[in-house]
Design a protein around this nucleic acid. Structure first.
Length: 263
DNA sequence: CGACAAGCCTGGTAGC
DNA sequence: TGCTACCAGGCTTGTC
């Protein structure tokens, strides 16, 4: 479920495991996820360097390679990382970094919809991709959020998920935020009052903070959360009613019809 | 076996 | 009418 909280957990994982070890070799099992180099050139660029720091913007993770710039990672729908010792890489490993410490870092991704690229700078990458501000950084405040909704013709869920507007929220967390805010996912932004918009903002902050604290693991989420109950006819943790599913911009959205009535 | 799945990107178009 | 902003569909491949 690689949305902002998941990628933040991956960032902390890399920070605590994968820095300051020389990359002795790189194995590329799927070239399609390499954005700007083929496998041979990517390997050549990575070998001999080491990761020295981590950043995150929205759903993208960045690893600093000092004078050689940055490596960005995107996890698609199914990507995750594993730092391990041993000879056999995990199933569905697409790119494998082999360190001189005897440990390896595997990018595991059953569906090859993620991407790796080698940007010169994080800010340049954000600009090139047209990403909006990261929703969990300090400068993302209520005023910024309200300005990003102002004048929009979109449905609230689509706007929360639009990475060009604001970066980090995907299908699962947009549903959770709107469940906590008691707003139907198909609500048009122009029909939301100022108080309702502020309520969405507060829910956004609370949900992301709680998710990161709980290692983005739905099983550890508060009992009032929808995320562990993303299935039709599950029961609403607030009112006990049946959870329903509806399509919003082509994405399956779960909600409680009585807690989140359609306007 | 068809529908579905947490990601992004693109082309066509609805609506100001 | 023209331009934007929006959204449906496609990509991939394993699971139910």
């Amino acid at each position: 479920m690689p949305e902002l909280p998941d990628v933040e957990v991956y960032r902390q994982y890399c920070q605590s495991t994968s820095l300051y070890q020389r990359i002795e070799d790189v194995e590329v099992f799927s070239e399609r996820i390499l954005e700007d180099l083929d496998g041979v050139d990517f390997r050549g660029s990575m070998m001999g360097s080491e990761f020295q720091g981590t950043e995150r913007h929205g759903k993208y993770l960045f690893l600093n390679r000092s004078q050689k710039g940055w490596m960005s990672m995107h996890f698609g729908m199914t990507g995750r990382l594993k730092y391990y010792q041993g000879t056999k890489e995990p199933a569905y490993t697409q790119v494998l970094f082999i360190f001189n410490s005897g440990y390896n870092l595997a990018l595991i991704m059953p569906r090859k919809l993620g991407a790796i690229s080698l940007p010169d700078s994080v800010s340049g990458f954000i600009k090139k991709k047209g990403l909006g501000p990261d929703v969990f950084k300090d400068d993302f405040n209520k005023q910024v959020f309200l300005s990003l909704l102002a004048g929009s013709r979109a449905m609230i869920k689509s706007q929360l998920m639009n990475q060009q507007v604001m970066a980090g929220i995907g299908n699962v967390y947009s549903d959770e935020i709107l469940f906590q805010a008691e707003i139907h996912p198909r609500t048009k932004i122009k029909h939301l009052s100022k108080q309702e918009r502020v309520k969405v903002y507060r829910s956004l902050n609370q949900v992301l903070e709680s998710a990161i604290q709980n290692q983005a693991d739905p099983e550890q989420f508060p009992s009032t959360y929808l995320t562990p109950r993303r299935e039709i006819d599950a029961l609403c943790p607030r009112c006990g009613g049946e959870i329903k599913r509806v399509k919003v911009s082509g994405r399956s959205s779960y909600y409680c019809p009585s807690c989140q009535p359609q306007k």
